[in-house]
Design a protein around this nucleic acid. Structure first.
Length: 579
DNA sequence: GCCGTTTTCGGCCCGACTGTTTTCAGTCG
C-alpha cells in the first residue's frame, strides 16, 4: 500500500512536469520531475510524513519546496491538483502517451498539436500515414519512419504491464482479500507467480467456505473500474491501472489442483495433462481423477508426485524442458529469493542517482545487504554528469571514510564505476584510474543502432579489456520502450567466458537484462551471473527479487550467482576469473 | 520551482547524436 501511494503522487508530479514542459515553461519541469523521482524511490510514505508534520514535513523531502509541498497537500486533501486540471484543459493532449513514442519529445508534441491538432498516438499515426508530418519544421521523411516504428513498438507491448509494476499491486490485493472473514487462502497465480517479465492479467486463486463474501469484497476494491462477469466461483474485472484481474474461488480440498491449473503456462498445462491421460487419469482445476475417484488435489506437490514428476517450481512451468527434467529428478536447486548478499550496481547523487553514498549504504543495510558497489556513470555520459578520473579519486576518498564509519557494522562499500563503452569498444577512463577500483563494470549507453557485427565486436573488445569484471544490462533493452540493440548473444557469452567477465541480471523494472533465456544459456556455458538492483534511489533495493526471479526462470542455482558470496569471496572470485 | 562551504538571487548540471538544416533544434536519460 505504502509504495503505491508514493507512486501515485510521483505519477501526478510527473504529469505536471510533462504539461509544463510542452508549454515550454523553463526549469519547473525538471523540478517536478526530480521531486517525482525522489518520491517514487522513497521507502517512507509521503502521506505519513504529511499526517505527522504537515506541509513542513513535505518541505523536508529533498527536491520538494514550498510550491510542490502545496501541490502534494492539495492532492492528499482534495484528490486532485487544480493547476494540472487547468493545464490539461488548455492543452488537451495525452502527453505521456505521445512522449512514450521514441523520438517524440515535448517540443515535437507542442508542434504536432498546434499545426495538426494531434492529441494522441492514434492522431499521430493517422497524420504520419497521410504524410502530413514530414512538411513541418524539423520533421522529415526519416522522422515519419521513426515515429511509425515507435508507435508499432508501443502497440506490440500494449495490454501487458511490467512485472515490477504489477507485483506490488497484486500482493496488496492478495493481502486485502486474505483479511476477508472466512477466507482460508489467497494466492496470486498465473504469469505473476511464474514471475514472467510482463503481465497480461492478474489471476488470483482463493479458498473459502463463503465464496460470495470474497467476491463482494473483490468487486468492492477501489481499484475495480468495471466488472465483466461475476459468479460464485469466478469474477473478472478491469482495474483502473489498465489491467484485468480474475478471481477464482475453490473449495479448500482442491486448492493445489486449482493453483496448478492457474499457474502453468498453456503449454506446460497441456503437457502435464497429457501425462495424466497416459497414466489413465484426468487432470483439471478440481483435481487429479481416476474415473470419478479423486487421486490428488490438496497440494501441487502430490499432483506432480502422482504423475511421476518432481515438484516443479512455478518459474519453470513454461514447457521448456522442465517436465523431462522433473521426470528424471534432474531439476536444478534454484537460487532462493533474498539470497543476494551484496549489490554491485548502485548509482548515487554523484551522477543520476538521487541519494548520497551514505544514504544508499544505509538503505542497503536495511534491506539486509552486506555490501554494495558504487557504480556511478563515467565522463562520456555527460547528461548524468559522469565522473572523470579526478572525480573518481575524490569519490574513492569519500568511500574510504564511510567504510571506516561502517566498520563495526561489518558493512562494506566497494569502489567501482559504470564505465561507458565507446563506439569502438574502448573505455572512457584511463587504466591507471580503473586499477584503483575494487571492480570495473562496463555498459553501452550510445550507438544503439550499430549492425549486429559491429555491436558484438565493440562489446567483446570491452570484455577483453584486462580490468573489466562485469557487463551491465548486456542488451540495453527497456521493456515496452526500446528494443535491445542488435547483438550476437552466443558470441558475447562465449567471450565473457573466455575473458572472465560476469554478466549482469539487472533488476530495474523495465530492464530485467539479461533476460531469462539468456541467463539460462549463460549458465549452460559456465558464465557467472551477478544480480544487481541498478538502484538510483533507496527504495530500489527491493527490486533485487525481480532479477532473482529471472535467474530462477533461467534455471540458475545459488552457485551461479557471484554476489550470493561474502564480499571477500565475491571479489576474489571476480579476480580469479580474469586470469 | 528548487537550491546554497562560490549565491537567500540567480543559476539550473559539464554533451553526443540524429536529422534537420545550411548552422542548429530536439531528444536522450
Amino acid at each position: 500500500m505504502a509504495v503505491l501511494h508514493n507512486q501515485r503522487i510521483a505519477r501526478l508530479l510527473n504529469e505536471m512536469s510533462e504539461y509544463l514542459e510542452v508549454q515550454d515553461v523553463p526549469f519547473k519541469p525538471s523540478a517536478y520531475a526530480r521531486a517525482a523521482g525522489i518520491i517514487a524511490g522513497m521507502t517512507d510514505e509521503v502521506t505519513d510524513i504529511y499526517d505527522q508534520n504537515g506541509k513542513k514535513g513535505l518541505d523536508g523531502i529533498p527536491g520538494v519546496g514550498k510550491g510542490i509541498a502545496e501541490k502534494i497537500e492539495e492532492y492528499i486533501t482534495t484528490g486532485s491538483i487544480k493547476e494540472l486540471e487547468q493545464m490539461k484543459k488548455k492543452f488537451p493532449v495525452n502527453v505521456s502517451e505521445l512522449s512514450a513514442v521514441q523520438g517524440v519529445g515535448p517540443k515535437k508534441i507542442a508542434a504536432l498539436y498546434k499545426k495538426l491538432n494531434i492529441k494522441n498516438c492514434a492522431d499521430l499515426e493517422r497524420a504520419v500515414r497521410a504524410h502530413k508530418v514530414a512538411g513541418l519544421a524539423h520533421f522529415g521523411k526519416k522522422s515519419e519512419e521513426q515515429i511509425l516504428k515507435g508507435i508499432e513498438f508501443l502497440k506490440k507491448g500494449r495490454g501487458r504491464m511490467l512485472l515490477g509494476t504489477v507485483v506490488p499491486l497484486a500482493q496488496d490485493i492478495e493481502a486485502r482479500l486474505r483479511s476477508v472473514p472466512g477466507v482460508a487462502r489467497v494466492t496470486v497465480a498465473g504469469s505473476i507467480r511464474r514471475r514472467q517479465e510482463t503481465i497480461g492479467d492478474i489471476d488470483i486463486v482463493a479458498t473459502t467456505a463463503h465464496p460470495k463474501r470474497v467476491m463482494d469484497a473483490f468487486i468492492a476494491l477501489p481499484e475495480v473500474e468495471h466488472v465483466y462477469s461475476s459468479g460464485p466461483t469466478k469474477t473478472m474485472v478491469r482495474l483502473s491501472i489498465g489491467i484485468d484481474a480474475d478471481l477464482r474461488v475453490v473449495k479448500k480440498d482442491c486448492y493445489g489442483a486449482a493453483l496448478q491449473y492457474f499457474t502453468g503456462d498453456k503449454q506446460h498445462n497441456i503437457e502435464v495433462r497429457k501425462i495424466a491421460i497416459k497414466k489413465g487419469y484426468k487432470l483439471s482445476e478440481y483435481g487429479l481423477f481416476k474415473e470419478k475417484k479423486l487421486i490428488a488435489a490438496k497440494t501441487e506437490e502430490e499432483i506432480y508426485k502422482k504423475l511421476g514428476l518432481a515438484y516443479i517450481p512455478p518459474e519453470l512451468r513454461t514447457a521448456s524442458g522442465e517436465i523431462e527434467a522433473a521426470r528424471r529428478n534432474g531439476l536444478p536447486d534454484l537460487i532462493p529469493y533474498g539470497s543476494i548478499r551484496g549489490d554491485l550496481q548502485v548509482q548515487t547523487n554523484w551522477t543520476d542517482g538521487n541519494a548520497s553514498i551514505e544514504e544508499m549504504a544505509k538503505a542497503a543495510m536495511n534491506a539486509g545487504l552486506e555490501y554494495i558497489a558504487i557504480t556511478d556513470h563515467t565522463q562520456s555520459l555527460a547528461m548524468t554528469g559522469g565522473l572523470d578520473e579526478k572525480k573518481l579519486a575524490r569519490q574513492g576518498k569519500e568511500i574510504d571514510a564511510l567504510n571506516k564509519k561502517f566498520k563495526q557494522k561489518k558493512f562494506h562499500i566497494l569502489k567501482s564505476a559504470e564505465v561507458n563503452i565507446m563506439k569502438d569498444g574502448s573505455l572512457d577512463i584511463f587504466d591507471a584510474a580503473l586499477k584503483k577500483l575494487d571492480l570495473v563494470c562496463v555498459a553501452v549507453h550510445s550507438h544503439f543502432a550499430l549492425s549486429e557485427k559491429e555491436q558484438t565486436e565493440r562489446i567483446i573488445r570491452a570484455l577483453k579489456h584486462p580490468l573489466v569484471n562485469i557487463l551491465f544490462h548486456p542488451t540495453g533493452r527497456r521493456i515496452g520502450r526500446r528494443e535491445a540493440y542488435a547483438l550476437d548473444m552466443e558470441s558475447t557469452l562465449r567471450a565473457a567466458k573466455e575473458y572472465g567477465v560476469a554478466m549482469e541480471a539487472n533488476a530495474s523494472t523495465d530492464r530485467l537484462d539479461l533476460k531469462d533465456a539468456h541467463i539460462r544459456r549463460a549458465i549452460e556455458l559456465g558464465v557467472n551471473i551477478v544480480v544487481n538492483s541498478d538502484a538510483h534511489a533507496p527504495g530500489h533495493f527491493a527490486n533485487l527479487d525481480l532479477a532473482i526471479a529471472q535467474v530462477r526462470r533461467g534455471w540458475g542455482k545459488k552457485s551461479d550467482v557471484l554476489n550470493t558470496l561474502s564480499v571477500d569471496k565475491c571479489l576474489a572470485f571476480l579476480k580469479r576469473l580474469k586470469k
